[in-house]
Simulated assay, not measured.
Amino acid sequence: MSHRPTAALTLAAALVLPLAAACVPNDAPADDATAAGAITVSSTADACDVSTTEAASGPLTFTVTNDGQDVTEFYLLGEDGLRVVSEVENIGPGLSRDLVVQARPGTYWTACKPGMVGDGIRAKFTVTDSGADTGPTGDTAEQLAAAEASYVAYVKDQVGALVAGTQEFADAYAAGDDATARDLYAATRVHWERVEPVAESFGDLDPLLDLREADLEDGATWTGWHLVEKDLWQPTPEANGGVAYTPLTPEQRQAAADDIVANTAKLQEQVTDPAFTFEAFQIANGAKELLDEVATGKVTGEEEIWSHTDLWDFQANVDGARVAYEVLSDVVQERDADLADALDERFAELQDLLTAQGSVESGFTSYDQLTEDQVKDLAAAVDALSEPLSRLTTTVTGA
């Protein structure tokens, strides 16, 4: 799911992590912030006040407080200002969220995006060489290297399946075979939803493929899965702002299908590049991001507003979060066995509720057919998993 318009900051390989990390005052000397590895950020409508512009390499915690009136996001970007190292999103007014990163020496950019639109309020951020190894060493380093390799292989497998499924779906849709396209829609998107944190880390691919109509900026061109979803499950005038829906023409259908295929191919090119990596802290952050995707879009029924296939996406996000945790589980078990036990238990409880509604293979209950109590139970299980999952990154990085 993308709640963000097509701008350079639409990359996201990490997210909200409500951690109990130490903070430093905004007026603290830079040396104190550097030594602590803890940095405060105040985001308002016209400012992004970071307590220091420099820190030593190693684990860094950005404690981001929304002192404005609009929901905000915070990014740590690479030297080019495009690559997202990590982000924290959906920070409501008056709330604080922590972002944990494993930072190597180099030049970065910090950016707040009040209202979650535009290019954000940016400033250069320098990470100096602390002289210490960035990340774990010894046996732990070997475990995390194996975890990273395993996760990258998983991503490549899922994207390969996505490419094949997308082509089949696009062919059916462009040919006007709506029944087949509807059957393929949710099952194909599962592969996207399982690895969305990776997809979000590459330029504008996420909004180009997955932007909801409700998040479309005025004057922007809408493309991707949800454009086609609306055309396949055409709304009534009451559900379409009071006006009759105008179906896409055959030419528009072909163009929409071609866009989805082309952008999915770009994603495959990125993840099959020999230089593609996804570090352990990004994997851990991505697990929490996927669960936040469930909480902000799937549980509410807002993601698949026309097709009501949210439970397919819900299951896929949980699958992706669980795989991300499982590739890191050896390290988690060694460092915090209680956390590992809690995660195993909470994942199982949430999966039991999903299994009661179907499966990816056999199909799920349409989301608009769930009872209020069933939705509440799912939401409660997501909340219960969210707390221990929010501790995954700090456990893995030793921050």
Score class of each variant (00 low, 15 high):
residue 308 H to S: 13
residue 117 V to F: 07
residue 354 L to T: 10
residue 197 P to W: 00
residue 293 E to L: 01
residue 275 A to T: 14
residue 215 D to L: 05
residue 228 V to I: 15
residue 263 N to I: 05
residue 104 R to D: 11
residue 379 A to I: 03
residue 361 E to W: 01
residue 314 F to P: 12
residue 111 A to E: 02
residue 316 A to C: 02
residue 213 E to C: 01
residue 270 Q to G: 05
residue 138 G to R: 07
residue 164 A to H: 10
residue 360 V to M: 07
residue 326 E to W: 02
residue 288 K to A: 11
residue 102 Q to R: 12
residue 91 I to A: 06
residue 298 K to H: 13
residue 114 P to D: 10
residue 40 T to R: 12
residue 30 A to N: 10
residue 67 D to E: 15
residue 248 L to E: 05
residue 151 Y to G: 09
residue 268 Q to F: 06
residue 224 G to N: 02
residue 185 Y to S: 00
residue 138 G to L: 09
residue 33 A to N: 07
residue 73 E to A: 13
residue 139 D to I: 10
residue 217 E to A: 12
residue 250 P to T: 01
residue 46 D to Q: 13
residue 4 R to K: 07
residue 227 L to P: 01
residue 382 V to D: 13
residue 327 V to C: 06
residue 307 S to A: 10
residue 55 A to W: 03
residue 375 V to Q: 14
residue 303 E to R: 01
residue 358 G to H: 09
residue 358 G to F: 09
residue 74 F to T: 02
residue 346 R to Y: 09
residue 214 A to T: 12
residue 361 E to M: 09
residue 384 A to W: 01
residue 283 I to L: 12
residue 180 T to V: 12
residue 290 L to V: 06
residue 143 Q to S: 12
residue 256 A to W: 04
residue 312 W to E: 05
residue 70 D to R: 10
residue 315 Q to A: 15
residue 282 Q to W: 00
residue 352 D to W: 02
